[in-house]
């Protein structure tokens, strides 16, 4: 393609974005748009998949059968969400295996929140309430993203997330209204997950390298700081109902802006975890690699079985 032809295509593409038209897999798109989408969607997918680990940790120790089936259903949903997202990314021309390898080798990132351990049962409540709550704020905004398959995946995911947040909040509510030990356990989980949940929205807008172009192409719809503020505004009254205290002395309702002001995030901790030095980074990648390697014979056996089935069908037909 000549330079002029590419320029013309770029112009048409920009117009379509400006008109809020969705971009579909076979449409022409700038290479950078393709790459940015692959990066964002695959990271999102990896987060769903790695996110199963901290919760999976409590499946066998859930305090009742109902809690156990609920947690199983939630973890299964996370696997499903990962699959929707991998499929969406695959439409951009990258293979599932390639994406997965980027995650296994640590080349691709996933949400840092999953590098924190789940020490008590209350953590499962805090994760549903705060981590899924933060994810919902982000994902609702992404239902308007410009890439069609990603937007459709988000719609499907958002429909399922609400259950995740509610079951978590209910766990917190019951603990917060339980014995002294249970209340303390709930408060402790909130103390540990509050700041990491705020970090889920990513660096400050001023420090976010991808935000400008991403917003211009409507891959991202709202900035990190905007989404973070929306989350804080939603969650603070919910904490009040629980009777728990958010671990931020600077948290205060601002009459003028109509929003909650909150304290400074520990960005040093954020970057440390992003760079791989969080509490569980190593465990998470080891667990995923172990599962991948030990599952190899299963994947191969399934391929062999599939081929046999095909041969049988051919024989039957002839």
């Amino acid at each position: 393609m000549s330079e002029q032809e590419i320029k013309d295509l770029e112009k048409i593409f920009e117009e379509r974005i400006a008109n809020d038209e969705k971009i579909e897999p076979k449409d022409w798109m700038p290479e950078k748009y393709r790459q940015m989408n692959i990066r964002q969607i695959s990271q999102h997918a990896h987060s769903e998949i790695v996110g199963m680990l901290p919760e999976g940790n409590w499946i066998t120790r859930a305090p009742s059968l109902l809690r156990k089936v609920t947690l199983l259903a939630k973890v299964q949903d996370e696997a499903g969400h990962g699959l929707y997202l991998y499929s969406a990314a695959e439409t951009l021309g990258i293979s599932r295996d390639e994406m997965y390898k980027q995650m296994l080798t640590g080349k691709a990132k996933y949400s840092s929140i999953f590098n924190y351990p789940t020490l008590t049962w209350a953590d499962i409540g805090a994760i549903g309430w705060l981590v899924d709550g933060a994810a919902i704020v982000n994902q609702v905004s992404l239902t308007h993203t410009s890439y069609g398959p990603y937007a459709r995946g988000m719609v499907r995911i958002c429909k399922e997330e609400s259950f995740h947040q509610r079951q978590g909040y209910q766990i917190m509510y019951i603990l917060a209204n339980g014995t002294k030990e249970q209340r303390e356990m709930a408060q402790d989980a909130l103390n540990r997950f509050w700041w990491p949940a705020l970090m889920m929205f990513g660096p400050r807008d001023a420090d976010s390298t991808h935000t400008d172009q991403s917003m211009k192409w409507k891959i991202k719809i709202k900035t990190n700081d905007t989404l973070r503020q929306m989350f804080v505004d939603q969650v603070v009254p919910q904490a009040d109902i629980l009777g728990l205290t958010i671990p931020d002395p600077d948290l205060k309702y601002n009459e003028e802006t109509g929003h909650y002001d909150f304290g400074e995030i520990d960005w040093e901790e954020f970057w440390q975890v992003v760079k791989g030095h969080g509490i569980c980074n190593k465990d998470r990648l080891e667990a995923k690699n172990k599962a991948w390697n030990e599952g190899e014979w299963v994947r191969n056996a399934a391929v062999a079985y599939g081929e046999k089935q095909k041969e049988k069908q051919v024989k039957k037909a002839s």
């Binding site: 951009l92 599932r96 390639e98």
Partner: peptide, 15 residues
Amino acid sequence: MSDNKKSNKNEWPLW
């Protein structure tokens, strides 16, 4: 749906 040119041989087919 994807036009997957990079998919490797051992990867399960896409449906």
